[in-house]
């Protein structure tokens, strides 16, 4: 495994830790989109169907378990924890996330590497992950006072995707037959969706002011 891939995974892991830390320590999920979190839980379930059937490495299995476990615990906290759920911005988080699920499923049935169940679910998870951040970005735009942890969480998620792209470029040039158009294009789309956010993130960082996306 190359350093870019490891850095990508670690950034992803840290983003989840930042979010859980926010939920645990200040007992608040303000500014976090439950829609996005539910989509991520669905992404991991459909992607890691092979977790107990194909052994890749101990690292791989542990990371899969962590992403599955953390995504479900975040959803649980936001839905059922008696204190945390009160801070959920339900009225603002109105993105109709099921409108993303069906098109992704249809696209996965039409465009995939192999027409098998696991392969289609894997492809579906790639398409869904690419757009899963949209409810969160919409919520961020609507929220007036976004706290720093929420902004860092979104930034780390975007950074993870950017690092994965660098990892793919590296692997393309160093590994024979490493060619995965579907993964690359969905990853690229996902990163582009962060473009606007990144722009305002760096602007707020440069000017040392609180990030707020323009309406």
């Amino acid at each position: 495994m190359n350093i870019l891939r490891l850095a990508g995974d670690m950034t992803h892991l840290i983003s989840v830790i930042v979010l859980l830390l926010k939920i645990h320590s200040i007992k608040s999920c303000a500014g976090i989109s439950l829609k996005t979190q539910e989509l991520y839980a669905l992404v991991f379930v459909s992607r890691y169907l092979n977790i107990f059937t194909d052994f890749i490495s101990l690292y791989n299995t542990i990371m899969k378990l962590i992403f599955l476990g953390t995504s479900f615990s975040i959803v649980w906290y936001m839905r059922y924890h008696k204190i945390v759920r009160r801070s959920y911005d339900k009225d603002q988080d109105t993105f109709r996330h099921y409108f993303l699920v069906l098109p992704c499923l249809i696209l996965a049935l039409l465009i995939n590497e192999r027409f098998t169940f696991k392969e289609i679910m894997w492809t579906f998870s790639l398409y869904l992950e690419a757009v899963a951040i949209l409810p969160q970005l919409v919520l961020l735009q609507r929220t007036k006072n976004t706290d720093n942890l929420t902004v860092q969480y979104i930034f780390l998620l975007g950074a993870y995707r950017a690092l994965y792209i660098l990892n793919w470029i590296y692997r393309y040039f160093t590994e024979p037959d490493y060619l995965h158009w579907i993964t690359w294009i969905s990853g690229l789309v996902q990163t582009i969706l962060y473009g606007d956010f990144f722009y305002y993130y760096f602007l707020s960082w440069k000017n040392n002011v609180k990030l707020q996306l323009p309406a």
């Binding site: 194909d54 590497e113 696991k118 392969e119 995965h180």
Partner: peptide, 10 residues
């Protein structure tokens, strides 16, 4: 060849 290709990434 495995039914399930690539998949060493998360």
């Amino acid at each position: 060849e495995a039914e399930f290709s690539l998949k060493d990434e998360l």
